[in-house]
Design a protein around this nucleic acid. Structure first.
Length: 482
RNA sequence: GGCUCGUUGGUCAAGCGGUUAAGACACCGGCCUCUCACGCCGGUAACACCAGUUCGAUUCUGGUACGAGUCACCA
C-alpha cells in the first residue's frame, strides 16, 4: 500500500478561521493516523488580497496547535517551492499542454462582455464565445496585446462523477460546468487550476477540504483526466456553522463572535483545548465516548469513518467547558505562569496574587474571564446592607455587626496572616459564642468582599487581601452598619 | 432560480432493520461546602414529514418540507 499524502493549502488572508484550522487538523490527522506525510502549501495567487505577514500567522498557528508539516515553505521535501506565486512557470507550462491537447483555450472576452452575460441575480455563465477561435485570430489578438485568459473546455454533454469518502457518489451534469478560467489575465493561475497541478506534482493522495468544493470537484476530476493523471481520493468535510442571536444558522463568521484561532487565544483559550474541541465538531471516535484528547491520542484514534456528513454549529459554551477542563488539569506552576501575570496587571501590590490565582483556578473557563471575577478586589464595591441577610445562616445586618465588632480585635492581633490561622480563629470564636460557623463566615465575607458571591470564602479572601486591607475593609463595614 | 449535499433532544453526537434511542455541553434538582465554583448523585429533553420495501423501520428507497453550499479573472 502506498503512503498517504495530505496537505493543507490555506490562503494567506491574515487570520486563521477556526473552520480552516479544523480542515488542517483533519487533513493532518488523516495522514498521521496512517503514518503518512503532510504538506503545507501557501495559495497566494490572488494578488489583490495579499496581506503582509499573513504567512506568519499560518505558520504560528500550526506551531501552536502542534500540527506539524513534513514539507512546506520552510522545509523543502523535494516538491518545492511550496508557495504558489513562486510556481508560475509551472502552471503556464501545464496550461499550455492543455491548450495543445484541446482541453483548454485562449479567451479574449472583455469584462464588459462577461458582465453582460450575468442574469439579474448576478449569476454568471460563460457562453464559450472564444472556444473556436482560429490559430490565426489568436496569434493576431496576442500580438495586438489584447489581454487574455486561458479557460478549461468542459464537455458539452454527459455527466461527471466521483466518489467522495464522506459523501459517497457525487454526480454532476457536465452542462452545469462552466468553462472556468485556469490562467488569469495577470498571468496568475486560479485555484481551480493550480491546486490540481500542485496536488499532482506534490504527490497528494487525499484531498481534504471543505464541503464548498463538493460540486466543483468534477471540474477538477476532468482536469486530472485531461492530463491523464490518476485522480486523488476526495474527503470533503461538513461546514462549520454559527448560530446568531435570532437562532439562525449560517456559515461561521465574525457575526457569531470570535472565529479566528488568534481571537480565541487572545481571549484566553488554550490551543490544546481549541484543537480538542474542533476535532470533535464533525468527527467522533469509534467505540469510545472519550472527549478529552491530546494530539497524540487524536492521531492514534482518528479514522475517516468517524467523520460526519452534516454541518456542526460551533458552540462557545462547549468550548468553554473544554477549556475549563484543560485549565483545571494544568499543574499549579504552569497555571500560575499564565494567571499571575494577568493579576499583577490588574491588582494592587498588597494583593496576594498566587492565592487569588488559586481561588480562580476552578472558577474560570478561560483566562480572559479573570478580570470579570475580581472587580471586588480591585475596587471597594458599593454595597447594600441587605447583603448581610442570609436565611440559612440566620444572619441580619444587626447580628453581623455584632460579629464584626467582636472579631475585629481578634483579627488585629493575628500575627501569621493566612487562611488556616484565620479559619481556626473564626471557628473558635463561633464555638465560644455558640454561633454557627457559617454565620460568622458570612458576616466577615460580606464585609471584606462587599458582594454576594465571591470566589472563595471569608478567610480565603482575607488572605488574598492581606491584613491591612482586610482590617480596613471590616472597619469600613462597621462604620457603614452603625 | 438551476445544480449538489444535509436533517437523532437547545448544541455536539452514538446508532449502521428488532435498543428502555448511548454519552457530552447547556439547563433543572440534590449532596458536599466559610457564599460561589470544583466534585459527586439524579432529572427534563430527540429520530422533520409522507409514502413505499419488510414480519418489523431512526436505520433501506422515493417524494415533500426545511437548512446549507455552489453557479467569480476568490479560494
Amino acid at each position: 500500500m502506498s503512503e498517504i499524502v495530505t496537505r493543507f493549502a490555506p490562503s494567506p488572508t491574515g487570520f486563521m478561521h477556526i473552520g480552516n484550522l479544523r480542515t488542517a487538523l483533519y487533513s493532518y490527522l488523516l495522514s498521521k493516523s496512517q503514518g503518512g506525510k503532510f504538506i503545507l502549501r501557501i495559495e497566494d495567487t490572488d494578488q489583490v488580497r495579499l496581506v503582509d505577514g499573513a504567512v506568519d500567522v499560518i505558520l504560528d498557528t500550526l506551531k501552536m496547535t502542534g500540527i506539524e508539516y513534513d514539507e512546506g515553505p520552510d522545509s523543502d521535501g523535494g516538491h518545492g517551492p511550496y508557495v504558489q506565486s513562486q510556481r508560475l512557470p509551472i502552471y503556464k507550462e501545464y496550461a499550455e499542454k492543455l491548450v495543445e491537447s484541446g482541453h483548454a483555450y485562449y479567451c479574449f472576452c472583455t469584462q464588459e462582455r462577461l458582465d453582460s452575460l450575468k442574469d439579474e441575480k448576478g449569476i454568471g455563465g460563460y457562453d464559450g464565445h472564444c472556444r473556436n477561435l482560429s490559430a490565426e485570430e489568436i496569434r493576431k489578438n496576442i500580438s495586438d496585446g489584447i489581454p487574455y485568459v486561458i479557460r478549461q473546455r468542459m464537455p458539452d454533454e454527459g455527466k461527471t462523477s466521483y466518489t467522495d469518502v464522506v459523501y459517497g457518489e457525487v454526480e454532476i451534469d457536465n452542462s452545469e460546468l462552466r468553462d472556468q478560467i485556469m490562467i488569469k489575465a495577470d498571468g496568475y493561475p486560479t485555484y481551480n487550476f493550480c491546486h490540481v497541478v500542485d496536488d499532482y506534482l506534490m504527490g497528494v493522495t487525499h484531498v481534504v477540504r471543505g464541503n464548498e468544493y463538493l460540486t466543483s470537484t468534477p471540474k477538477y476530476c476532468l482536469l486530472y483526466d485531461a492530463f491523464g493523471w490518476k485522480r486523488p481520493t476526495y474527503v470533503h468535510l461538513p461546514l462549520l456553522m454559527g448560530k446568531d442571536a435570532g437562532g439562525n444558522v449560517s456559515k461561521l463568521s465574525k457575526r457569531h463572535g470570535a472565529v479566528s484561532f488568534q481571537d480565541l487565544v487572545n481571549a484566553g483559550y488554550l490551543p490544546e483545548a481549541i484543537v480538542n474541541y474542533i476535532a470533535l465538531l464533525g468527527w467522533c471516535p469509534k467505540e469510545s465516548n472519550q472527549e478529552i484528547f491530546s494530539m497524540d491520542e487524536l492521531k492514534s484514534n482518528f479514522s475517516i469513518e468517524g467523520l460526519s456528513k452534516s454541518p456542526a454549529v460551533f458552540d462557545y459554551e462547549k468550548l468553554k467547558w473544554f477549556n475549563s477542563e484543560y485549565i483545571k488539569a494544568m499543574p499549579v506552576d504552569k497555571y500560575e505562569e499564565k494567571a499571575v501575570p494577568i493579576l499583577e496587571n490588574l491588582c494592587a501590590d498588597y494583593i496576594n496574587k498566587k492565592k487569588l490565582a488559586s481561588l480562580l483556578h476552578t472558577r474560570i473557563a478561560y483566562f480572559g474571564e479573570i478580570e470579570s471575577f475580581i472587580s471586588f478586589v480591585t475596587n471597594r464595591l458599593d454595597m447594600d446592607s441587605s447583603l448581610y441577610t442570609n436565611k440559612k445562616n440566620k444572619t441580619t445586618p444587626e447580628n453581623c455587626r455584632e460579629v464584626l465588632e467582636d472579631v475585629l480585635p481578634l483579627l488585629e492581633s493575628v500575627e501569621d496572616w493566612n487562611n488556616d490561622n484565620l479559619f481556626a480563629l473564626l471557628k473558635e470564636y463561633s464555638a465560644s459564642k455558640e454561633k454557627k460557623a457559617g454565620a460568622v463566615m458570612w458576616a466577615v465575607r460580606i464585609a471584606v468582599g462587599r458582594q454576594a458571591i465571591t470566589p472563595g470564602g471569608a478567610t480565603e479572601l482575607m488572605e488574598v487581601f492581606g491584613k491591612d486591607e482586610s482590617i480596613s475593609r471590616i472597619k469600613q463595614a462597621l462604620s457603614e452598619l452603625s
